[in-house]
């Protein structure tokens, strides 16, 4: 992978230039579809962008220097980590990636939840702490199926390179792995029925309760980018056609990502929020079952 290629992926596609507008688009699509399913009009498409600008324009609260530093650095780190993960997505498999980028991707995707946990504790709010605790408990619960699915894919493709995995993993492994990953998406994106870590009626906004103005704007951006990265990862893994021309690949990648957003929004609109123990149980039980199934198939299948 050349430097120019890496820069293009980080800054243009599927990185910054693509991801930020699409993040806002996805946030809007989620809100709009939820509204329509609830019989409301819903916001206009520029609403997430306006929300972002409005939050940016607000004056941050004065805080003790160390806390202020931590509370500003954590959302920046979350944004940077997600952008890095996005840059690794092998939308055009023949022209990028390196062996072991799967490990880097997993590590980068874990940065936003980790930052959120830290943010919850650093903000010194009881609700932030509760949110952070819930986030931590959930991340332990969903990490098992999430990692198991990725490991199964890697084992099936016999490679740690994302582009190889996306091309060569067998469908017998890919199917349960994709299901396990899809099951992890709502909890990673904190939407119903697994919106436990940011359960408004219980603990306000959870870990980000004490964040305000530009700091909150960055969290919102990080959240939007997580949508792009996670749906993008799923889209890349779900569409292996190696021979397709690059415009087709790009279009299919975007289409699958957006369709996934709609599905997640519809599921969120049709469910109530589960409790922490119930949500964790779903992942330990069903998530792990799918992950383990994928692993077993990957190892046993000739």
């Amino acid at each position: 992978m050349t430097v120019g290629r890496a820069l293009f992926q980080l800054l243009v596609f599927p990185g910054l230039l693509y991801a930020v507008p699409v993040a806002w688009l996805m946030l809007w699509m989620e809100r709009k579809l939820t509204a329509r399913l609830q019989g409301r009009i819903g916001p206009p498409f520029y609403q997430p962008f306006f929300d972002f600008v409005k939050l940016l324009a607000k004056r941050p609260l004065p805080r003790p220097p160390l806390q202020a530093l931590a509370m500003s650095a954590l959302p920046v780190l979350a944004v940077a980590g997600t952008l890095g993960a996005l840059a690794l997505l092998p939308v055009f498999p023949h022209s990028g990636g390196f062996t072991g980028d799967l490990v880097l991707l997993v590590a980068l995707l874990e940065i936003p939840p980790l930052c959120a946990v830290l943010a919850g504790f650093v903000s010194r709010s009881i609700y932030g702490e509760l949110g952070a605790t819930r986030e931590a408990v959930l991340s332990i619960a969903y990490s098992l199926p999430f990692l198991a699915a990725l490991v199964a894919l890697a084992a099936a493709a016999n490679s740690l390179s994302l582009s190889v995995i996306s091309q060569q993993a067998m469908w017998q492994v890919r199917l349960p792995a994709l299901l396990a990953l899809a099951l992890c998406l709502p909890v990673k994106l904190r939407v119903n029925p697994f919106s436990v870590a940011n359960a408004e009626q219980e603990i306000y906004a959870g870990a980000t309760t004490e964040f305000e103005g530009p700091r909150l704007a960055l969290w919102e951006l990080a959240h939007g980018l997580e949508w792009v990265a996670l749906t993008g990862l799923w889209a890349v893994l779900a569409f292996p056609a190696a021979n397709a021309a690059w415009p087709l690949r790009a279009v299919v990648f975007v289409a699958i990502s957006l369709a996934l957003v709609l599905v997640l929004a519809a599921v969120a609109a049709a469910t109530a929020r589960l409790k922490l123990a119930q949500a964790a149980r779903v992942y330990w039980l069903w998530g792990s079952a799918l992950g383990v199934l994928a692993m077993v198939v990957a190892v046993v299948w000739p």
Binding site: R36, L37, Q38, G39, R40, I41
Partner: peptide
Amino acid sequence: NFRRDPATY
């Protein structure tokens, strides 16, 4: 709800 017109103004 999706098929119907929105109830809000």
